[in-house]
Computed example of a mutant assay.
Amino acid sequence: MAATQYATAQTTATVNPRLRLLNKLRAGEHPLLTFVALPSVRHAQIVALTGVDGIVIDCEHGHIGDDAMHNAVAAIAALGVSPVIRIRGTALDTGAHGVMVPQIITADEARQVLQSSKLPPQGVRGQSSAFPAIVHGLTTPEYMRSANETIITMVQIETAAGVQNVDAIAAVPGIDMVFVGPNDLAQSLLGYVPAKGDEPVFTGAIDKIIAAGRREGKWVGRMVNDGAAAKKERPRYDMVAITGDTKAIQNWYIAELAIARS
């Protein structure tokens, strides 16, 4: 008996103008994202007003608890930007437009991600609360009908083992994007960060990740350090995230203080 084919974020016919990241990806418009690690709703609003298309609320490495996560999702979405959560626990109950799951190493782990992020019959995610529907501008029944095919499910490939298994990971039905985590990937492959960018083992691994995504018809994304790198890399990727808030703040102060002291 053939497996049931479900619509995904890549194939959905659902139209929702609030889903800026999904809409830009489907239109091939190469959206730009950044990461936020600080737990302030005002901070989230300030970043959302920069012109970025999506913000990854970093619940893996950031200092963000459940209250801050909920507040940030609502604030970002209210300003027409897509909130994505680098995931922890019940993150989708906030109404996020996507989830990014770090350190995926095997296809079985990718399938577990799908089970947790999809409502039945595709997965085991609970109905949760009224909050997701509010963020998406829908009624709860409308959200329940569309969530599985509009929430973007991203898995990060950032280890040597993940690269080795990336073909199988990318082939998992329902995974929408493979996302390159370059710093952890460099640490895993080279033993240091950042990569110089010309190491054959590092560039070869990235080529393999991109090829796997393309072969399976999945979107491919990565993180970069600045706008110049984003401009350079965008032709190879469907989505690029430009560093994050903590690094941006530090870089600005370092540069300005150097000028002031010169």
Rank of each mutant, 00 (worst) to 15 (best):
Y6G: 03
A9G: 15
R18A: 08
R20Y: 01
L21N: 12
N23V: 02
E29P: 09
H30L: 06
F35H: 04
S40H: 13
S40Q: 08
V41W: 04
R42W: 12
H43C: 12
I55E: 08
C59L: 10
D66T: 14
H70S: 09
A72I: 09
A74H: 13
P83G: 06
R88A: 14
L92M: 14
L92Q: 13
V101I: 14
P102M: 01
P102I: 05
I105C: 07
A110Y: 02
Q112G: 09
Q112I: 07
L114D: 00
S117F: 10
L119F: 15
S129P: 00
A130H: 10
P132G: 08
T139Q: 04
T139F: 05
M144A: 12
E149S: 12
I151Q: 10
I152M: 11
V163Q: 07
F179C: 03
V180P: 04
G181Q: 04
L185W: 05
A186F: 10
Q187F: 09
G191P: 05
A195V: 05
E199G: 09
A212R: 00
G213C: 03
R215P: 07
D226V: 09
E233I: 05
P235W: 03
R236M: 07
V240Q: 04
T246Y: 08
I249N: 04
A258P: 03
S262N: 13
